[in-house]
Amino acid sequence: MASTAASLRLPSPPLSAPAAAASFSSATTLRFPLRRRGAARPLAVAAFKKLSEASPVPIPPESAQPPLDEEALPPKPGVYGVYDAAGELQFVGISRNVRASVEGHRRKVPADLCASVKVSVADEETPDRAVLTNAWKSWMEEHIESTGKAPPGNVAGNNTWVGAPQRPPDLRLTPGRHVQLTVPLEQLIDRLVKENKVVAFIKGSRSAPQCGFSQRVVGILEAHGVDFVTVDVLDEEHNHGLRETLKTYSNWPTFPQLFVGGELVGGCDIISSMAEKGELSALFQK
């Protein structure tokens, strides 16, 4: 059961600042011995209702614009489960402000998937993230045990409730073609590859590469979890002249071109070869 729950996607609530977290940890340390020594974990989980014990609260469609029930959906941290119109559990989430999260789902998710919600809020105003996580796991396990499956919204790949992570925008060398450069383009390129650890000059944008070779390199980098930036050499508005200038700068005639640590590593064939041989990870660790 734990392994099943562990493979599901967990929405990340906003974390407290380090100083505040440290302060809270100290407070928690002081607080628990005054209650029941050694009972922190059961107490934390016990503080939340079971999924089956929580009462469903209707979620009016946004178009009707009635406010969400203030008492039933307080702006407090907790765990919640959203049900569709047929009464099927669609998503279990945690939040520092359950009311705000449900309100957000109501705005973005189709009304038939977001018809009612069950909520259990924490006793503390700022519970540790682990407390919320444990509550989430408890609700997930309870649901899986009774139905044999996870809520569809919590299955990896389903972005209905938690949107796909947004890709970094492509970098641009200039604000636009109308802007007259005060420094040579070569200098802008040099600065760019040295200020960013990994830079891929590609044909097209990162989200829509215009050639198979560029797409392959982007795919390899993303598969390796590399933190990289992209520059679209076909963007004549913002990167005018880059395509030819870069060939001279790098002494490399084709695209894509991958720079790591300010130095050219190569094009698609070299990157593909390194990936096949398992050499890429070491490259990015330097």
Partner: peptide, 26 residues
């Protein structure tokens, strides 16, 4: 090293590169 080898091949093809859409050095 591999990068230099690819450069050597590219250099050999430089006179024709303008007419070549794609070169893949396997």
């Amino acid at each position: 090293r591999l990068l230099e080898r690819h450069r050597m091949v590219n250099t050999a093809l430089a006179p024709h590169m303008a007419e070549i859409h794609a070169v893949s050095i396997k």
